[in-house]
């Protein structure tokens, strides 16, 4: 196992070997999760805290299952019933939790950089489960695992990341990871949702989705937040679906064996048509399965660097 780090704060900074060894380990956990007996003892006696300042269903559930399958004691904390609501600062929250001697904290926060800040204030391992529009490393890893298992590899594949890239941490982590593994990434979206300066990344950017999808192997759709649908960045959900929603017609521009992904939760009829989301080319449910495996792999990899590890 080539992973000697205490935290996983982002894909940025990971080398190719670290990424592939995490994916290799995750592969083995896919098989484990499909068995009747799913439990391991790797993290027995360890305490895992899921600290979610932003609402989450699948990511939080996925981390909880991953921790439990590895034998950890998992505690979920969400903003709704924590002292954060009473005005506690992020750093005070970190210090409070740290005093309880957890071994690993999984953090999601609405502010970019918040997880990194918290990681400097605690003695345990920290995993970034999404910080603002910055990074969501385990999502990128599970996406890569899903692609690798379906396409046999990532090198040389053409991947289109489509939609609200401006506000997407998933897009940022995926751009870094897929590029590191040799995929050709292109971005598709209205100019108002392309992050300023991203022309400088050297990735092709398309504002015409039909053109952008030509010849691609993988289409990654992104969620469009509801509050951004009505006039500030785009005029309406109706217009967005017309020009940037993945329907069968646009999908037909991609390679015949192109596969469709979405990090969830989906807005059906906004960024993706129901028949595409549920169609033969969709990997969306498989992504969820891969999520648990990838998170088990990350937890195990970090266990080596945990206290008393």
């Amino acid at each position: 196992m080539t992973f000697a780090r205490r935290h996983l704060l982002g894909i940025q900074g990971l080398n190719r070997l670290e990424i592939t060894s995490l994916l290799d380990l995750a592969d083995s956990y896919v098989e484990l999760s499909r068995q009747v007996e799913k439990k391991k003892t790797t993290l027995r006696g360890r305490t895992q805290i899921n600290l979610f300042f932003e609402a989450s269903t699948r990511t939080q559930a996925s981390f909880e299952l991953a921790g439990k399958r590895l034998g950890a004691d998992v505690m979920n904390m969400s903003v709704g019933n924590s002292s954060v609501k009473k005005g506690e600062t992020l750093i005070d929250t970190a210090a409070t939790l740290n005093a309880m001697h957890p071994d690993i904290i999984i953090v999601r926060h609405h502010a970019a950089g918040a997880v990194e800040l918290l990681s400097r204030k605690v003695d345990c391992s920290v995993i970034n489960a999404g910080d603002g529009a910055h990074e969501h490393p385990t999502q990128a890893l599970l996406d890569a695992l899903t692609i690798r298992r379906n396409k046999g590899g990532i090198e040389g594949l053409s991947v289109a990341i489509c939609g609200d890239i401006l506000h997407s941490r998933v897009a940022r982590s995926n751009i870094i990871l897929l590029s590191a593994l040799g995929a050709h990434v292109r971005l598709i979206g209205p100019s108002t949702l392309i992050p300023p300066g991203f022309e400088g990344l050297g990735l092709p950017i398309y504002t015409d989705m039909k053109k952008g999808l030509e010849g691609v192997d993988i289409i990654m759709m992104l969620r469009l937040q509801r509050e951004r649908m009505s006039g500030s960045f785009i005029p309406s959900a109706k217009e967005y679906f017309r020009y940037f929603g993945l329907d069968q017609e646009k999908l037909s521009r991609a390679k015949p064996d192109a596969l469709v992904m979405h990090p969830g939760p989906m807005n059906r009829g906004v960024e993706i048509a129901t028949d595409v989301a549920d169609g033969a080319q969709s990997l969306i449910r498989e992504q969820v399965e891969m999520g648990v495996a990838v998170r088990m792999a990350v937890l195990e990899a970090l266990a080596g660097g945990m206290r008393n590890g």
Binding site: G231, I234, P235, K238, E239, R242
Partner: peptide, 15 residues
């Protein structure tokens, strides 16, 4: 250019 001419939300230029 903006919905209802209110100057706050752009209209559906494409459609």
């Amino acid at each position: 250019l903006t919905k209802g001419l209110h100057g706050t939300e752009m209209t559906e230029f494409g459609l």
